[in-house]
Design a protein around this nucleic acid. Structure first.
Length: 576
RNA sequence: GCCCUCGUAGUCUAAUGGAUAAAACGCGAGCCUUCGAAGCUCGAUUUGGGGGUUCGAAUCCCUCCGAGGGCACCA
């Protein structure tokens, strides 16, 4: 429907006409500011020297009138119910009820396939997300990367791209030197086997505390990492053990979250090629020595130099990222690589992308999809080192527990198995939605009450709305002939318009690499659906064809809600 | 000191330069004898200060104030 409007406007006015969907339908189903924009262009039109400068600008209202008559000529009869012009020069389109009904018919046929496209056919995108660090518990910060990345991957797949979901585990670096040093000083094997991440974390936290008071520790940590990197068998064995135990625990959390990866490859995977990478870069005179270390100068990008080798000859995060980039380009030939990493690392990615250009590795579009921090209640950064983070496992458990309690209260007749599945879908969904509904760039403060609020603008609200629609649909049968001509109430037309916007919302979401517009869309759709539910009898509608048409409408709404929630990685149970 | 984000209602967040700045939580008043009250209806409370660009600014530019993050051997 929107596509149709786009093509009409293209024929009538030309390319690049902006179409918006006004908040209030008072301003039409669709609206354009083309007349305002064109009036401005005319004003700015060049004039010959010596001739008088054009006075004023084209009157936008007058121009809008001219555009409307052109548009009417290009549009099929009965496409528009009416076109209005509003000050200062907006053109507002009211689509005819029949066109809306036709769109609903299409949606009712396509169901969850509605909005899929092949826009990305033949294009491969690597999305790197989650990326937890070995020996550290996943906390609420990793949650953002994990679910934003997972959702973006879903969205790109929906649009026909081939997506490679990549978990780039932090399993190499100086921190492992510190951990090994700490283990050698105070470690206890049995304790670690009992609860690995908890023990490893407490070793790490203790080491950091001592290090801040005594510089001997820092050297010790660096020394152990150097040994690890040069292949010391004892250290390697410890490292491997820490890694295996950690990944086991991560998998538990991914299971809970319902998040999957195609590739789980950490930094350590690239360790064997680092030496030769550094030599190659050095030989090409791209890198230079500075204070005993090797750097790539980035002055022309206005950035501080990129350090690729420490003075003790061990490698760095950035070095491994360059190696990883080279590997990905060669092996996958992607169209784009998206790094879903918090905005603390903005400088790192600016350096990486600049270095990639210098090293001639910029053969794909590279994007850092950054997001704000999850701050503690006092608005301060949460730190693993000081041990004050909210751990992900705890958060998910609490949320599922609460959902379980509520479903037992509200729906005692369901089987134990059903209740458990619902508790998980609702509890996990609530946590995911809380992040995904927000603009990812904002810092958010962590708040238990907000996280565990299952009313209002929340996943449980959406799931509940759909479950109510489904419970009506379970009690009825939809006939083959739809009778959509019986739909005509304002709210019915509003719902259809909303449903018809879904493809555009998804397209836009991929374009801006954001998820909050999908969340907002689903909330608005659910809002309309609830109003409809409260105001309009469906099963009890005495007019049989109209009853059927209404069933088709809510069936379509339920499909789009499931589809949209799916893009956010949230389950939509039939009953909740 | 330099760089990057950001400042919207009591709280927490929305808003491709667009129309009356929008929700949620919390607060107040209603609605279960129409299909599930995790719901619906109604109400009060908002763009840090000052300039500028624009037909139009929360959004762009300048400046001041405030917050968070980053800045060579962490990741």
């Amino acid at each position: 429907m929107r596509k149709k409007l786009e093509s009409i406007l293209r024929r009538a006015i030309g390319k690049g006409v902006e179409i918006s969907t006004p908040e209030s339908e008072k301003f039409g189903h669709y609206s354009t500011n083309a007349a305002l924009k064109l009036a401005k262009v005319k004003k700015a039109a060049p004039h010959k020297l010596g001739e008088p400068r054009p006075v004023g600008r084209e009157n936008p209202l007058k121009l809008a009138g001219e555009l409307v008559s052109k548009i009417e000529k290009c549009a099929p009869k009965d496409f528009f119910e009416r076109i209005e012009i509003a000050a200062p020069g907006f053109i507002n389109f009211h689509i005819s009820k029949n066109v809306l009904r036709q769109e609903l018919f299409l949606i009712s046929r396509q169901k969850e396939k509605y909005g899929r496209s092949d826009a990305g056919r033949g294009k491969k995108i690597i999305i790197e997300y989650s990326s937890p660090n070995v020996a550290k518990p996943m906390h609420v910060g990793h949650l953002r990367s994990t679910i934003i990345g997972d959702s973006l991957a879903n969205i790109y797949e929906f649009l026909g791209y081939k997506v490679v979901r990549w978990n780039y585990v932090g399993d190499w670096g100086t921190q492992f030197g510190k951990l090994i040093a700490a283990y050698k000083r105070w470690g206890n094997k049995a304790e670690i086997e009992k609860s690995p991440i908890k023990e490893l974390l407490s070793l790490y936290v203790r080491f950091h505390k001592e290090e801040s008071e005594n510089p001997v520790f820092a050297n010790e940590g660096r020394g152990e990492f150097m040994k690890l990197e040069s292949g010391d068998a004892g250290n390697k064995k410890l490292w491997y053990w820490f890694r295996v135990e950690s990944i086991k625990e991560f998998k538990k959390i991914y299971g809970l979250l319902g998040v999957k990866f195609d590739i789980t490859l950490g930094e350590s995977f690239f360790e064997p090629v680092l030496k030769s990478l550094i030599e190659r870069i050095y030989a090409r005179k791209i890198a230079q020595e500075s204070e005993g270390a090797l750097i790539i100068p980035l002055e022309k990008y206005g950035l501080p130099p990129a350090l690729i080798q420490k003075s003790d000859e061990s490698s760095l995060y950035l070095t491994r990222d360059i190696a990883s980039l080279e590997y990905r380009l060669k092996k996958y030939k992607p169209f784009e690589i998206i790094y879903v990493v918090s905005n603390e690392q903005t400088l790192h990615f600016e350096q990486l992308f600049a270095a990639a250009e210098i090293v001639r590795l910029k053969k794909a579009k590279l994007a850092h999809v950054k997001f704000g921090l999850v701050l503690g209640e006092k608005g301060k950064k949460l730190s693993t080192r000081s041990g004050d983070t909210v751990q992900l496992e705890e958060l998910l458990r609490k949320s599922v527990d609460l959902a379980r309690k509520i479903v037992r209260e509200k729906n005692p007749k369901l089987s134990a198995k059903e209740k458990e599945a619902i508790a998980e879908a609702v509890g996990i969904g609530a946590v995911k939605y809380n992040d995904l509904k927000e603009n990812r760039l904002s810092d958010i403060s962590f708040d238990w009450n907000k996280m565990l609020d299952f009313s209002g603008d929340s996943a449980p609200y959406l799931q509940y709305t759909r479950a109510r629609l489904k419970s009506i649909l379970r009690k009825a049968r939809i006939t083959k002939k739809a009778y959509l001509e019986f739909l005509g109430d304002d709210i019915e037309m509003s719902i259809i318009r909303k449903l018809a916007e879904f493809p555009e919302v998804v397209r836009r979401s991929a374009e801006i690499l954001m998820t909050n517009n999908i969340a907002k869309y689903l909330y608005e759709l659910a809002n309309l659906a609830n109003k409809y539910y409260e105001s309009t009898p469906i099963l009890k509608d005495e007019n049989a064809p109209r009853r059927n048409a209404r069933l088709v409408l809510i069936d379509s709404a339920a499909s789009i809600m499931k589809s949209g929630l799916g893009l956010l990685g949230i389950k939509a149970p039939e009953k909740i």
